[in-house]
Design a protein around this nucleic acid. Structure first.
Length: 596
RNA sequence: GCACCCGUAGCUCAGCUGGAUAGAGCAUCAGACUACGAAUCUGGAGGUCGGGAGUUCGAAUCUCUCCGGGUGCACCA
């Protein structure tokens, strides 16, 4: 396909000297494989796009392809046999997409970043899986990717935890397990240490409403923590360790990894003075209210200064974000750093990025906040403090259980039902997040999040499972060829397959449509990289799966009274489809079952 | 007051840097399992793309404005 693209563009450039030639992919596969829109060129030539298109179409000749003008477009359409061969040859190598040239540049992706002592809610799945997908996509695009988790293990919120522990749990107060009615709904797991810490956190904020002085206790505890108080440090470490055990369990369940979990907020504790110095030496640090230190950003159009140090001398998240950026610059000398965090932090990141550019012009335009909308409840915002949240594990468990019921009804013979239910349930939850634009806020609805028919993860997974089912019947090495031999950072590595001399039985519409859509994987991946959103990738996977379902429905593959050559060719198309789906899902963080 | 996001079919949403007749899913109606898995497929119905103005050969897409919804604005992150 690349060869045809090059040849087509070259001939267009010859015919249109000094014109910009960019090729598109037609939306409708029947129009062809490549399209040149004539609008711009025709304007500067003083003719209508239609007549330019037909003029160009008569001039351009490319072997194995027809060139025709359709209205204002010149379309290149490959001969069916050539399209089949080109596509299968390129998808049945080691990788479904060829490895991109090394960019020799590093992209940092900061994502997930949960707070210590809080359980993952359904909201966390967005940052976690969005960041995971972006990291995979940029790795495929040839970048060196560093996966960072800016763990929320520092700050006054930690002070609240210490204060609450001191008040109510110091001597393992049995009351800790009561008084939180909502927790009873999660009784099976509410006895884990993290649940207890969360209960402390919630209780603290509930009592704080009645007793404002508790707020001061929390700040005092954080000050003790920053002042190396041994008790505070010991508890900090304990709480952090307990939390990480839970976090790692969730990450394992989601198949998400980080380069390191060490670079949380606490990691930058000893680097805060450096930040203050850097700001001060540039004359940026100003006195704020109550003895605090701030950076004035009125020149940048912000009517509120950015708080850098609190009145009691303790640090705040902005200072830690600045420290993190300075550290990252010296460690990775990055090209770009993506901050995958909720849109409610928009203002904060604008401030931080503005300050970074003031400290050092190097930072200009290197940081990007990748925001996403909230997941809300029908009654409004979720709030961990208030306890009206949906926990991620409950969603994953419910998804798994509902799938299990469906399997019991539809495929009771299935051998590894537990693993498959997990794969499909989690796949559904992850897919729906990738499927929708990250900016839109979602109102949580069990039946929508856990839908398994139509435009869903399981639909795509089903297409894969069906293909694998065909391979099991086909025998030979087919099943084995559909299995990746290895994986590195989301990229699947398969056995390279040689094509037979002639491909037969692929010239009809449904096969050609499927082939056309397989070619859409790469553009979709590029679009996802540019838009910093896996949506176009997820949608293309769905489109491919739909095209496969149509093909499957109208094209006998195994039990045909046809030639072995046709059977062979159609199996190869199935193989290419399975690999593309498997790879695409894996980029999103979803696994493709061979049976379901 | 400052900043950001959203408004497209009954519902949930796609529609990429303006471009070929505005697309999916759900729901609804009518069909397809004695063919490789019906978690599927085929077809019907359903939209003055929130209103208005502007830029353009061309606007769901860009600009302005208004209306409606959501979010954040210094001692939480």
């Amino acid at each position: 396909m690349q060869g045809f693209k090059k040849a087509f563009a070259e001939q267009l450039r010859l015919a249109l000297p000094s014109q910009e030639v960019t090729l598109e992919r037609p939306k409708d596969y029947q129009k062809g494989d490549l399209a040149f829109p004539c609008f711009k060129a025709s304007q500067s030539l003083g003719m209508s796009p239609q007549s330019l298109a037909s003029l160009l179409a008569s001039k351009i000749k490319i072997k194995d392809a027809t060139i025709e003008a359709t209205g204002p477009y010149v379309n290149l359409r490959l001969l069916e046999s050539v399209r089949s061969r080109e596509t299968l040859a390129s998808t049945l190598g080691n990788y479904p997409l060829p490895p991109q040239e090394k960019k020799n540049a590093t992209i940092l992706v900061e994502y997930s970043s949960p707070n210590i002592a809080k359980l993952f809610t359904i909201g966390h799945v967005r940052s976690t899986m969005l960041g995971h997908a972006l990291a995979n996509i940029y790795a495929q695009e040839g970048y060196e990717v560093v996966r960072l988790n800016h763990l929320g293990d520092w700050g006054t919120q930690f002070g609240t935890l210490l204060a609450a522990y001191e008040l109510w749990a110091k001597d393992s107060n049995p009351e800790l397990e009561k008084n939180f009615p909502w927790a009873a709904e999660y009784s099976s797991e509410s006895t884990t240490p993290l649940h207890r810490l969360l209960q402390l956190y919630i209780r603290f904020h509930a009592e704080e409403e009645k007793n404002v002085s508790l707020r001061e206790d929390a700040r005092a505890w954080f000050k003790k923590l920053e002042n190396q108080d041994p008790d505070a440090r010991r508890l900090w470490k304990k709480f952090r360790d307990l939390s990480l055990i839970e976090f790692n369990r969730i990450y394992e369940r989601l198949g998400v990894t980080f380069d390191s979990l060490e670079y949380g907020e606490a990691f930058y504790e000893d680097q805060i003075p450096g930040v203050l110095n850097a700001l001060d030496s540039k004359g940026l640090l100003k006195e704020g209210e109550n003895g605090s230190k701030v950076v004035d950003l009125s020149e940048e159009g912000f009517d509120i200064p950015c708080l850098i140090q609190k009145g009691d001398g303790t640090s705040i998240y902005a200072s830690r974000d600045l420290a993190a950026a300075l550290f990252r610059k010296s460690k990775w000398n990055y090209e770009r750093c993506l901050y995958v965090a909720g849109s409610e932090q928009n203002f904060h990141f604008q401030q931080v990025f503005a300050i970074l550019s003031k400290i050092d012009p190097w930072f200009k335009n290197k940081q990007t906040h990748v925001p996403f909308g909230l997941i809300k409840l029908p009654e409004g915002k979720m709030s961990t403090r208030k306890g009206n949240v949906i926990f991620l594990e409950d969603v994953l468990n419910e998804a798994r259980d509902r799938i299990q019921k469906i399997i019991s009804a539809k495929n009771p013979e299935l051998s590894n039902q537990a693993a498959t239910s997990e794969m499909l349930g989690t796949g559904a939850v992850i897919f729906i997040n990738a499927f929708n634009d990250r900016n839109t806020s979602i109102t949580f609805d069990w039946n929508k999040v856990l839908a398994f028919e139509g435009d869903t993860g399981p639909y795509v997974q089903y297409a894969h499972a069906r293909i694998c089912s065909i391979f099991r019947r086909a025998g030979g090495s087919w099943s084995q060829w559909a299995e990746p031999r290895s994986e590195d950072f989301g990229r699947l590595h398969f056995e390279s397959i040689e094509l037979p001399k002639s491909l037969q039985g692929l010239d009809h519409a449904s096969a050609q449509h499927l082939i056309f859509e397989l070619n859409g994987l790469e553009p979709a991946l590029k679009a996802s990289a540019i838009s910093l959103s896996p949506t176009s990738l997820a949608r293309q996977l769905l489109t491919i799966s739909k095209a496969f379902s149509v093909f499957y429905n109208d094209s006998p593959i195994l039990n045909v009274e046809q030639s072995e050559a046709i059977r062979q060719s159609r199996l190869l198309l199935c193989l290419a489809t399975a690999r593309v789906i498997n790879q695409g899902l894996r980029w999103l963080g979803i696994f493709a079952p061979t049976e379901m």
